[in-house]
Design a binder for these strands. Structure first.
Length: 456
RNA sequence: GUGGGUGUAGCUCAAUGGUGGAGCGCCGGACUGUGGCUCCGGAGGUUGCGGGUUCGAUCCCCGUCACCCACCCCA
């Protein structure tokens, strides 16, 4: 027998999975569009040179490559790749369609991306990202509004304990320079510092050493960590602002860009004050994030019971320029759909009102020759807005009703010889066992009445 | 990529170096115009795959693959 599992890291979605996914995606899309983000879609496959060199070394290796086809198939060379995120394709789209797009472009995009990663809890090789990006503005309003949008999404889904940590790439650069880390080691040092909350100062010190960071620089970096009370600030605008204000001589004030970054991050935080993000934001001087295209503010969103993040984003003012030649400022935020789903699943956060049955009512007949009649009744019921499943065989009535019951279908419309002869139908409520026989034209109303009772 | 664990019926799991079981589910019947409860019967397995030790391996050993957990990394 051939293997039937989906490919490693890929998943099949059965009906209940799809209903839950569509529920979350629906909330995300409604909130995003409420903020004026317009939907776009892009191909699953990009030319490989579009993606290479945009994500840093780690990212490059995780790109799912597609080998050349036809006569070049044997070369082992790739010319296409599955998209790794939605941001780089967006930058390409903006460069390609600049004339057709508004000067200020707010777009949202909910599509799958692929990474040749090793699967783990909440991590798959094919997963959905829910992105919002704003192109054409350097205003900190952009960052603030995106924090607000994702906060509204999570709040609407029922999350009450998420935090959005913010930082700025320029503050990181400034801090590293101030500590005396050679510029060539910055990337590696950031990877190590990003682990402070997991490894603690000692572990990070060891990793910094391993990455060649000089002893003095290591001490100075860890001293900053100690000064900031061991990492990120308390949640909420006030705490974040206080922590940011304290990011003085060792973090922000080292370089002019650092001073500028602290001010712009301060404005971002101020602007979230009257949004859904206000109680959520925190300043984390060690938040780094992996993608190499970020140039300014960076954000990441977490809940306590998930090791990874629910999403993240940041400003990337140079990415579009890599495609178009001229600079288009941009900033984006991405929510990971399956991360959200994993947590919602574990916490039982899905509303009870999510439909779980394929239909509101099922027709059942005793004789095969009545199936056509069942189809006609179904047609009428469907026109009145009901979801109707026509049981396609004249099986024993017990078997038919058992099927409806096991699928959670609340009503059965029984068309027996007696009923048909009188132009009637028997409508049975499976929850209560009550049934009534009435004129066929009254069936829709009778079913709806039963559905109403079930919900009440 | 590193370390640990687990692979047995559709699912959740037992078992013993000597003919592989249960519960749930499924199918049929008691009950050929009515599901849930009960009772009876039935189907379903090359014990992940390959090799080794042994008279004999589901069990012991080696390899391999898959999955799970932690690390790493990320959404």
């Amino acid at each position: 027998m051939p293997r039937t599992e989906p490919a490693r890291g890929m998943r099949d979605f059965l009906p209940d999975d799809v209903r839950r996914r569509e529920y979350v995606v629906g909330v995300v899309r409604r909130v995003y569009e409420r903020f004026g983000f317009e939907p776009i879609e892009t191909p699953a496959v990009e030319n490989i040179e579009t993606l290479l060199g945009k994500y840093g070394e780690e990212g490059n290796q995780l790109i799912f490559k597609i080998l050349k086809r036809g006569v070049h198939e044997g070369s082992g060379e790739a010319d296409l790749a599955l998209r790794y995120d939605l941001t780089v394709p967006l930058a390409r789209v903006v460069a390609e369609h600049r004339a057709k797009l508004p000067r200020l472009f707010k777009r949202c995009q909910i599509q799958p991306v692929w990474r040749a990663d090793r699967p783990a809890r909440g991590r798959f090789r094919e997963f959905y990202q829910c992105d919002v990006d704003t192109l054409g503005s350097t205003s900190p309003v952009v960052e603030a509004e995106q924090c607000a949008a994702v906060s509204e999404v999570l709040a609407e889904l029922g999350f009450g304990d998420f935090r959005i940590r913010v930082n700025d790439r320029r503050l990181l650069t400034s801090m590293l320079a101030g500590a005396g880390v050679p510029a060539a080691l910055h990337d590696g040092a950031l990877v190590a510092l990003d682990k402070l909350d997991r490894l603690g100062p000692d572990g990070v010190g060891a990793e910094l050493e391993q990455r060649g960071v000089p002893p003095g620089a290591r001490e100075r970096l860890l001293a900053v960590h100690a000064e900031h009370g061991g990492g990120d600030s308390a949640s909420g605008v006030a705490g974040a602002l206080a922590a940011l204000a304290a990011a003085g001589s060792r973090v922000a004030d080292v370089t002019p860009a650092g001073v500028e970054a602290r001010e712009s991050l301060r404005v971002v935080l101020e602007l979230t004050r009257d949004t859904a993000a206000a109680p959520r934001v925190a300043y984390d001087p060690f938040l780094a994030r992996g993608l190499s295209y970020y140039t300014g503010a960076i954000m990441e969103i977490n809940v306590p019971d998930l090791a990874g993040s629910l999403g993240g984003g940041g400003r990337y003012d140079n990415l579009v320029g890599m495609f178009s030649g001229d600079t288009v400022p941009a900033c984006g935020f991405s929510l990971g759909l399956e991360r959200i789903l994993v947590v919602m699943e574990e916490r039982g956060m899905f509303p009870a009102s999510l439909p779980s049955a394929p239909a509101d009512v099922m027709t059942a007949v005793f004789r095969p020759e009545d199936l056509g009649h069942a189809l006609r009744l179904a047609h009428v019921l469907r026109q009145s807005g009901l979801r109707v499943l026509v049981y396609p065989d004249a099986d024993k009535m017990g078997k038919q009703i058992k099927y409806a019951s096991s699928r959670g279908i609340p009503c059965v419309a029984i068309l027996g010889e007696d009923e048909i002869g009188r132009g009637e139908v028997t409508v049975k409520d499976l929850a209560s066992g009550r049934q009534e026989t009435l004129a066929e034209r009254g069936a829709g109303a009778a079913v709806k009445a039963m559905l109403g009772e079930g919900r009440g």
